[in-house]
Simulated scan of single mutants.
Amino acid sequence: MRWTVHSERDLYRDQWVHVAAADVELPDGRRLDHRIVRTAAPGAGIVVVSDRRVLLLWRHRFITDSYAWEIPHGSIRPGEDPAAAAAREAEEETGWRPEGPIRPLVYSQPSPGLMTSEHHIFRADSARYICTPRDAFESDRVEWVPIDEIRNLIDKRHIVAGTTLVALLYLLSEGG
């Protein structure tokens, strides 16, 4: 059932995010003042697998004041191919350059009832160490985590970020 948008007004806008309020009408005739968060660019991430291990970053997220494992992920630059963006993010955040074919793994809209964010997630089956991470501020450490430990890390809430969860659960559903 499609909602009707009667109007929209800006609440906040900067280089990363645009927050708006929309006057929407539900199919039953009720009206709501609904919030919309528009992100500036789509995101790209990558699951790099080698020897039944996955390349992950141990990150602190100040918003939730929590630590957890995440896949390399970031914004796609204007005109940049999503797969190239995913590979670039991996190299900048981990120091490892994905090699071989980089193929689509899964596409996700993390919260389509609130935001326009879309994430293109890829998979690579090898990587070569290039240098220390250029964006060393991204994580406390970078490690190759055994695929067999992923489920346990999720259960212990050591993997909680939505995009990482979707990507790794999809990987597990494929048999790793």
Rank of each mutant, 00 (worst) to 15 (best):
R2I: 09
T4K: 15
V5F: 10
H6T: 12
S7H: 10
S7L: 06
D10V: 12
L11P: 02
Y12G: 00
D14A: 02
Q15M: 09
V17D: 09
A20G: 03
A22Y: 06
A22D: 06
A22W: 08
A22G: 08
V24T: 13
L26T: 13
P27M: 01
D28I: 00
G29C: 02
R30E: 09
R31Y: 03
L32M: 12
D33T: 15
D33Q: 13
I36N: 10
V37S: 06
T39Q: 10
T39H: 14
A41V: 07
G43E: 13
V48P: 06
V48H: 08
V49K: 04
V54N: 05
V54L: 07
R59C: 04
R59L: 02
R59G: 00
H60G: 04
Y67F: 15
E70C: 11
E70H: 11
I71P: 07
P72C: 05
P72S: 09
P72Y: 02
H73R: 13
I76F: 07
P78D: 12
E80W: 01
D81P: 04
A85I: 11
A86P: 03
A87Q: 06
R88L: 05
R88A: 13
R88P: 10
A90I: 06
G95R: 06
P98H: 10
E99L: 08
G100K: 09
R103I: 12
Y107W: 14
Y107E: 15
S108Y: 13
Q109S: 14
Q109K: 15
L114V: 11
T116Q: 05
E118F: 12
F122G: 06
F122K: 03
R123H: 11
A124S: 14
D125W: 11
A127C: 14
R128I: 14
R128N: 08
I130D: 14
P133W: 04
R134S: 14
E138S: 13
E138A: 15
D140Y: 10
W144P: 02
D148Y: 00
D148K: 01
E149R: 09
I150S: 00
N152W: 00
N152D: 11
D155V: 04
R157T: 09
I159L: 04
G162P: 00
G162V: 06
T164E: 00
T164M: 00
L165F: 01
V166Q: 00
L169R: 14
Y170C: 07
L172I: 05
